[in-house]
Amino acid sequence: MSVAEAIRERDAARLPGKRDEDWRWTDLRGLIRQVPPPSAEVDPAVVGAGPFDALTDERVVIVNGLGAVHIGVEPGEAKVVVLRHVSRGDGAHAARVSVEVEAGGRLTLLESYEGDAGGYLAQAGLLFSLGKDATLERVVLVSDGAEGVTVSQAEVELSPGAAFAQTVATSGARRQRIEVRVAHPGGHAGLRLDGVYILDGKRHADLTSVVTHAGVDGATDQLAKGVVRDQARAVFQGRIVVAEGADRTDARMGHHALILSDRAEVDAKPELEIYADDVACAHGNTVGALDEDALFYARQRGVPEPQARALLTEAFIGEVVDRIGHEPAREIVRAWVSERLGG
């Protein structure tokens, strides 16, 4: 069962569906009867600029899948790289990206998913590998079309002392899954996995993560927040596994959602799977409406209701955005959030 395989073989039966526990809330098999034919080739020159283009000259653009891409950072080197996944038209496509940051290297990866109004099926498989004491910050802005289906699947391999930080901000798609699986070796490696979703219409977004702590002294910090309106549906699945012997693991996970309409839906499954005893693991999950008291307070101070709602929602999401380390990227994400919430 893999999306990449289903696209390659044009076999819808290989798509994961709601009978697969990991995909119970993001059913692709029930949605896609037939895998569309391969997407047409498009000249990267005609797709326009990406959201992070102004921040660096080093850019990798993948339009409608096509081939494998490698991004490398040498020992001690520091880089900012833009990686764009662009989907155009109705076809199906898959891409493979490998990112390697060697010992002591530093990479800021500014990744974007950009779709048009087409009914495309896109898959991206990414492999991140970090050497000793390497750092990577991944900022992902996902702006799919309302008819698109996108699956992004990242595998992360960390070395001791390395630091991987990720922030995903998405507005969803017809069906969309942003997945990350991390092999955490402990050894004072640090991991941050954040996410933001702002969904309206009939859009769907699924943030899934699996972190496996295999060695002593590992830390994981995860915070996801989102807002759903209209008939949108958000899915959050986070699993933290602490293997036998992975003592002194410190893992925290938080997921908080606001439902702003009676037909929207949020499904969450924050999981802990612990096989070691000297650990401190916790997760918190809340789903609810905007705090009426805060709203009342703001209105009583003279802020009209629509603005008061926008203000409170922005503050709610802002907590995640504030954690982005790369300042220019942070401001781009912040502007993107404001625009989404304002509309």
């Binding site: 439902i259 009676d262 929207a264 969450a268 924050p270 802990l272 612990i274 916790a282 999950n285």
Partner: peptide, 21 residues
């Protein structure tokens, strides 16, 4: 292990979940 499932399908509910190990 802790495996909670939370499914919220309206905008007027409040669900809070906490877990520690």
């Amino acid at each position: 292990h802790t495996v909670p499932y939370i499914e919220a399908r309206n905008g007027q509910s409040v669900f809070e979940h906490e877990a520690t190990t």
